[in-house]
Design a protein around this nucleic acid. Structure first.
Length: 277
DNA sequence: AAGAGACCCTGTTGGC
DNA sequence: TGCCAACAGGGTCTCT
């Protein structure tokens, strides 16, 4: 559930708290959530190192350390990163705890245990395969109408599948993909390569708008999402289609329809988002 | 090569 | 009321 706006909200909340903090201990409860390292290796590598920078790329959060290391966390569905100024006992869903020398702690809490943790050399990050595959950041200069048009023109599958693939643009998940397509008035089932330039342009703008709104409202809290202080966001109050199947379109009053795409539930307005351009 | 579906996870929900 | 299947979904893997 944490998509770009949620991860960015967490990053902004954590930035002031964790930069300059030195790791005292690391505790791991689920070794299989570590992708490329054992719990004892992770502990040994991070102990005594200091967080220098906090970066978001797509839905990934990267903790860069002084000693050329980067801890990469992907929260997937239910992951939460919670900062505590003093040591505190986690609950049964606590999967990873970083304890700093100040005795502050960062907890990864994750009910479904789908979050993934990777430790890289900082200078290897740009060549890490998942990042090589990742599309442009939606707020970067690289995310142009032309770049999006180019990505979409090669794909015959449904436009929503392409948005979820992270290859045309990074950071959209099920919620913001549905919302962006609604705002751009594009049917999620449309073949990606059938979009005309005006539609691609609307989509590029809509993607930036829905993500910007998501950040402005502190993220979307449907089920599990809270920020690093444990506070929910309010963007769920502003959603136009996600989770509203069968309810009336805020724009035209038509009943919103649902379908499945790429294994994900999808909601759209059949009138505002027609199959033809 | 592209596209579709399974898989990992576990709490919640809906149907019988 | 109780039980169980289906569902939620991001990324990765496998198969066609």
């Amino acid at each position: 559930m944490p998509e770009l706006p949620e991860v960015e909200t967490i990053r902004r909340g954590l930035e002031a708290k964790v930069i300059g903090q030195k790791i005292a201990t690391v505790r791991v409860w689920r070794p299989n959530q570590l992708t490329n390292i054992t719990p004892s290796q992770l502990c040994n590598q991070l102990q005594g190192d200091t967080i220098e920078r906090l970066v978001r790329r797509g839905k990934y959060l990267l903790f860069f350390f002084i000693r050329n290391q980067a801890l990469v966390i992907h929260l997937r569905m239910t992951g939460q990163l919670l900062y505590y100024p003093e040591e505190i006992e986690g609950d049964c869903y606590t999967r990873l705890v970083l304890t700093f020398e100040s005795s502050a702690q960062l907890h990864l809490r994750d009910v479904r245990a789908l979050a993934r943790i990777t430790l890289l050399k900082a200078d290897e990050v740009p060549r890490w395969d998942p990042f090589v595959q990742l599309g442009p950041e939606p707020f970067s200069d690289a995310f142009t109408v032309e770049a999006l048009q180019n990505s979409l023109s090669k794909r015959r599958t449904a436009i929503k599948n392409v948005l979820l693939s992270q290859k045309a643009v990074a950071g959209l998940g099920n919620i913001y993909a549905d919302e962006a397509l609604f705002r751009a008035q594009i049917n999620p089932l449309r073949p990606a390569n059938s979009l005309i330039l005006a539609e691609v342009s609307r989509l590029q703008t809509a993607i930036r708008q829905v993500l910007m709104d998501g950040i402005r409202y502190g993220g979307t809290s449907i089920r599990d999402y809270v920020n690093s202080a444990g506070t929910p966001g309010s963007n769920q109050e502003h959603l136009q289609v996600y989770g509203r199947k069968g309810q009336k379109c805020h724009c035209c009053g038509t009943r919103l329809e649902g379908c499945r795409l790429g294994g994900r539930s999808t909601v759209y307005c059949p009138l505002c988002q027609p199959m033809m351009a």
